[in-house]
Every structure is written in C-alpha cells, then in structure tokens.
C-alpha cells in the first residue's frame, strides 16, 4: 500500500475519534466563530468525510441553530458535497435560483426553510486530497469578495491542518516533504555554486552559468548535476574522458 492509499484510512481514524476529542472540536468551533467575525457571515460549519464516505458536520459557529438543523439530516447532496467531490470552491451560490442549485435541490429547499439565501463551500485540502469542506451560509444576499474568498480558503486550510495536527497520522509523512525537498534542493545548488566559484575563481553566479544554461537547454533539474559537483564525480568524469 503506498502513501496515497494509506491516507484515507488514516483520515477515517481521525473522524472516528474526533467526536471524543473535546479540544479539537472546541478549536474548530472557535475557528468557525472567528470566520463569522472576519467575513461577516452568520453561519459557518466544518464538515469532514466520515468512514462511510459521507460528510459529517464536526463543528459550527454557535450563533445559528439553523445550520445545525440543516446538516443534522442525512444527506449526500449540497454545495459542500459537491465541493468535497470536486475539490474546488463553490462561492456565492444563490440558494433561491434553481439553475444554481440543480445539483442539490432538496438541500437548497431545506436551507431556504432555515432562512439562508447565499451559500459558499471551500475545500479542506492537503495537496490533491480533499478531507472535508468549510461551509458558509448567509441569510442576506451578500457576495464574498475575492479577498474574502482567499481569507475563507486560508481558514479552511487552518481547519485542515488542525485536523491533521491532532492525530499522529503523520507517520504516513503526509506530503510533508514538499517544502523541505524544495529547500534541500536549493541548498545543494548554492553549495555547488560555491564549489565551482572557488575552482574557477569566479563569482558563484558566473561559475554556475554554464551548468544552468545546460540544464535549461535540456530541461532537466539542476539538483543532479549539483550533486555531482559536490561529490566530485563531475571532475572524475572529465578526467576519465580520453
């Protein structure tokens, strides 16, 4: 089983134990409250995928009981479900316009009964995998600006991290390596620049001009030739050439 396949199993474990974890639920509820303040949206909820594959409301801003009722009913439709499936945000949905809610008519009807007019759903995502959705519902006809949408996505990201944080999932190494690998690769390149600069008595950037042009021309990464500079195998190859 590779890492990507392990990941949903680990996520299931999280959701299984979430209900017992007062701290995390508290944190997510607090996050929902912060979200209502920052974005001036009255109802915010965090949904995660449950073992059954269905989304489950884990925390909500406590102002609005309508939201809890909306999500209390078992459902496999709604903007959050759509967002979870596609991994893309769905913003500024007018819940009264049939063409906008054609994928989830029953959900929209219940939402309208709860006096909600506008809805937004943002994916909770780690790299390509979606673990849930952050949902915002408004009783007013009020659009999220582009800036608001970015704030909302940042908060959805925070919720994602908090959920991951919480368990020792992590021996799956979740995609943690991305930034670390980027940095490590960059460090190697800079070290190789220094080595070449010293060998050729040039500035680091001058010394690295040729390898860089070569890499660009042949569209390969600089990390491998940089490693050869560091372990000296670039020199060995030159010497061995007849």
């Amino acid at each position: 089983m590779n890492r990507a396949e392990q990941w949903p199993a680990a996520m299931v474990e999280v959701v299984d134990t979430l209900v017992d974890d007062v701290d995390l639920i508290d944190f997510l509820r607090h996050l929902c409250d912060r979200c209502t303040e920052l974005l001036d949206v009255p109802a915010v909820g965090v949904m995660l995928s449950a073992p059954t594959g269905k989304l489950q409301l884990i925390a909500a801003s406590d102002e609005h009981t309508g939201l809890l009722e909306l999500f209390a009913l078992p459902t496999d439709e709604g903007p959050c479900v759509e967002c979870y499936r596609t991994g893309t945000a769905r913003l500024n949905i007018d819940l009264r316009v049939p063409s906008q809610v054609s994928a989830f008519p029953r959900f929209a009807e219940r939402a309208r009964q709860g006096d909600f007019v506008t809805g937004h759903a943002l994916p909770m995502r780690v790299r390509r995998r979606v673990v849930g959705a952050l949902n915002l519902f408004d009783t007013r006809e009020q659009e999220l600006s582009e800036t608001d949408a970015r704030v909302a996505q940042a908060l959805a990201d925070v919720a994602t991290i908090a959920v991951l944080q919480h368990r020792t999932l992590v021996h799956t190494d979740v995609e943690r390596a991305q930034t670390k690998a980027a940095l490590s690769s960059r460090v190697v390149i800079e070290q190789a620049k220094g080595i070449l600069a010293e060998r050729r008595q040039a500035t680091p950037d001058e010394a690295f001009g040729a390898p860089r042009r070569h890499a660009r021309a042949h569209q390969f990464r600089l990390t491998a030739p940089s490693r050869q500079v560091i372990d000296g195998s670039d020199v060995v190859r030159v010497i061995q050439r007849p």
């Binding site: 980027a182 960059r186 390149i189 800079e190 070290q191 620049k193 010293e198």
Partner: peptide, 25 residues
C-alpha cells in the same frame, strides 16, 4: 518549483551555502 530549481534569487541563506562550497574547496 522555481525556488527548488534555483531560478529565484531571493534566498536569504544562499550566501551561506555558496560560502560553504567555497570553503570546502
């Protein structure tokens, strides 16, 4: 990706790693 490939110049630690390479030689 651009950062990893050394395409961007704004890496604070660059000078330290370049100097490390120079000193090693």
């Amino acid at each position: 990706e651009a950062f990893a490939a050394g395409e961007t110049s704004d890496f604070y630690g660059a000078v330290v790693h370049q100097a490390t390479g120079m000193v090693s030689v």
